[in-house]
Simulated scan of single mutants.
Amino acid sequence: MSELHPDFPVEPILGAIAGAQPKLLLTQGENGAYDIPRRSSEEIMHRFESADDLADQLVTYFMRKKREYPDWTDEKHYERIRLALIKKADEAKWPYTDSEQAWIMCRLRERSAS
């Protein structure tokens, strides 16, 4: 099992239920206080491992596209990948939040710079 990267985003689960009187999603803690629900450590680790694996796959893709289109700048390649990542998430094909997508792109840049 890998170790959670310190920069990986860990966000609360935000939500509301529609209706005449909207209701916020909250959980009640052991002390009786209400709080915004949070992901379990297992779910966070799963999301991290999935995002990190995708970043690795995107490095391979990025390098292949650099060879196929040598006239394109790295920034053009990164932008095309970023837009595809957003599209996949918007279509619910990939489960990454906006901050996780930004983290994936940062990892891609770090790993492809070497």
Rank of each mutant, 00 (worst) to 15 (best):
M1F: 13
M1Q: 10
H5F: 03
P6H: 06
P6E: 04
P6A: 04
D7I: 11
F8E: 01
P9K: 10
P9W: 04
V10D: 10
V10I: 15
E11T: 02
P12C: 08
L14T: 12
G19S: 07
G19M: 11
A20I: 07
L25H: 12
L26T: 14
T27D: 11
T27Y: 11
Q28I: 09
G29S: 06
G29N: 08
G32Q: 01
A33Q: 15
I36Y: 14
R38V: 07
R39W: 12
S40H: 08
S41M: 14
S41G: 08
E42F: 14
E42Q: 11
E43Y: 09
I44T: 04
M45D: 09
M45W: 09
M45A: 07
H46E: 15
H46T: 15
S50L: 15
A51C: 11
D52Y: 12
D53Y: 12
L54A: 08
D56L: 05
D56P: 06
Q57D: 14
L58Q: 01
V59D: 00
V59Q: 00
T60R: 12
F62Y: 09
F62G: 06
F62L: 05
R64L: 01
K65V: 03
K66H: 03
R67H: 01
E68L: 02
E68R: 00
P70K: 00
P70A: 02
P70G: 02
D71Q: 14
D71I: 14
W72H: 08
T73Y: 02
T73M: 11
D74W: 09
E75Y: 00
E75R: 00
E75V: 06
H77W: 00
E79N: 13
R80M: 03
I81T: 05
R82A: 05
L83Y: 05
L83W: 03
A84K: 00
A84R: 01
L85Q: 02
I86G: 00
I86N: 05
A89G: 04
D90Y: 11
D90T: 01
E91W: 08
E91P: 12
A92N: 15
K93L: 11
P95R: 12
Y96W: 15
Y96D: 03
T97N: 13
D98G: 15
D98W: 13
S99H: 13
S99T: 13
S99E: 14
E100V: 08
E100F: 08
E100A: 05
Q101S: 06
A102T: 13
A102G: 04
W103G: 08
M105E: 01
R107K: 14
L108H: 03
R111W: 03
S112I: 02
S112H: 02
S112V: 02
A113Q: 10
A113K: 15
A113G: 05
S114E: 10
S114K: 15
